[in-house]
Simulated scan of single mutants.
Amino acid sequence: MTDFTRLPDLASRALGGAVVAANDEFFAARENLVLPEPAVERTEFGHKGKEYDGWETRRRRTPGHDWAIVRLGAPGIVGGIVVDTAFFSGNYPPHASLDGAAIEGHCSVDELTKADWQPLLALHDLAGNTHNHFPVFSDRRVTHVRLNIHPDGGVARLRVHGTALPDPRLVDAGPFDLAALENGGLVTGVSNEFYGRPSQLIAPGLARSMGEGWETARRRDSANDWVEVQLACEGVVTLLELDTSYFLGNAPGTAALTGSGPAGEVPLLPRTRLQPDTRHRFVLEGAPGVDRVRLDVYPDGGMARLRLWGRPTPAGRAALGRRWFDALPDVQALEVLGSVGVPPQEAGRLVGARPLGADLPPQVARLLDGPA
């Protein structure tokens, strides 16, 4: 994917992202950085001066720079960032950089500031009142990012676009949504997205309005609309949910779901009638493993959510586990191996030998390839 902005915003509050710390937020609150909606212009003045829809620090009178730390809603591999300085014209930072860290577990803010931060984006110039786009070239999975602004100023929004990469240890706990954005699902193709983005189909939670789903333009031909989703890993879907909530006069009349995987293309749900404003659930029995699905809606219309509950196949779980482990920064990879009882010297050897082969200690094989 060449346009990194087509990748999900891993930092968005809509995905569970949060600004957990900042060294200064005198003029405008740090939490605004990850709000999903675009920044708006404000004209009012408060006790501290003109108000802005963003994060703004005071004028720095000492050496150094300001920073804000964001916990990603979905840990993953960053493909690019947007530093949006909308409406900050005389008070934007002239330069910015970005660091990433991979944290094991749930740490305090104090522990987070002492984490092993690694550069994701070197210091770059910024323009005011502009969406500043920067590709990021990294193959490491991160759980947090730190935006550094030099020396001070205001930023409206930070978008951290990338590919979610779930922790396979959580996947092993039970059935999960193979299509969910937060689990690594990704929209790879769509026929039409005139009114609503297809990525919202696999967003967390329930839609709160028609605007939080996928909706196509009205068709005037004999074809139909569709969307394709790459799953978190190859898996067996056992429960399908097609949610048309809030779509009353514009829900599809019927829909079908087709999967593709090692067995080729397979029908998962035949063309089935849908109702407006309804969460439809279908139990799928005897379905083979698939790693992609195509949802066809007839002839057009809107859908709030697509859920594909199931379990990874053995091959899918192993591929996910190894992709996850290979993407861990060295420090977290050592912590992970230590948590399953691998001695430090052996852990160091394994981390340095990535990608690993098939001859592994039993506890490492279970970690990477899943329970036998």
Rank of each mutant, 00 (worst) to 15 (best):
R71T: 14
D116C: 11
G73T: 12
T130N: 10
Y92N: 02
V136D: 11
A102I: 08
H144I: 02
P75V: 13
A115S: 14
S89D: 11
A156P: 11
V136I: 14
I149D: 07
G80N: 11
R60T: 09
T62W: 00
F87A: 00
G76W: 11
E104L: 10
G90K: 09
A68W: 03
A96T: 05
V109F: 02
D84P: 07
G154C: 10
T85H: 03
G64Y: 12
D66R: 15
K114A: 15
G105R: 13
L147H: 00
A156N: 04
S108I: 10
T130F: 06
D99C: 02
L158E: 15
V83A: 10
L126P: 01
A122D: 14
I81E: 06
R71D: 12
S97V: 10
G90V: 11
H133M: 02
V70P: 04
T85M: 06
V142F: 13
V142Y: 09
N132A: 02
V83Y: 09
H161M: 05
L123T: 07
A101N: 12
A101Q: 06
P94F: 00
R58S: 15
T143N: 11
D110M: 12
F137K: 12
E104Y: 15
D139A: 15
A68M: 01
N129I: 02
S89F: 13
G90M: 04
A101M: 00
H131M: 04
F134K: 00
P63R: 13
N91G: 09
T62E: 08
H106N: 07
I149N: 11
H65Q: 13
H65M: 02
R146K: 07
F137M: 10
H150S: 06
R141E: 06
L98W: 13
P119M: 08
G80M: 00
D116F: 06
L72T: 02
A127H: 15
D139C: 02
S97G: 09
T130V: 05
V160E: 03
L123Q: 09
V70I: 15
K114D: 13
G73F: 05
R157H: 06
L126D: 02
G100E: 09
P93L: 00
A101C: 01
C107P: 05
T57C: 04
R60S: 03
E104W: 13
V82Y: 08
H161D: 09
D152W: 00
G64R: 07
D152H: 07
P151A: 10
R157P: 03
V83P: 13
P135A: 15
S97T: 13
F137P: 05
V70S: 00
R146V: 01
V109C: 10
A68D: 02
G64C: 09
V82H: 06
I77R: 04
E111A: 08
L120H: 02
A127G: 13
G76R: 08
G128M: 00
L126E: 05
V83H: 06
A122G: 14
G154D: 10
P151N: 09
D84W: 06
R59H: 00
L121S: 02
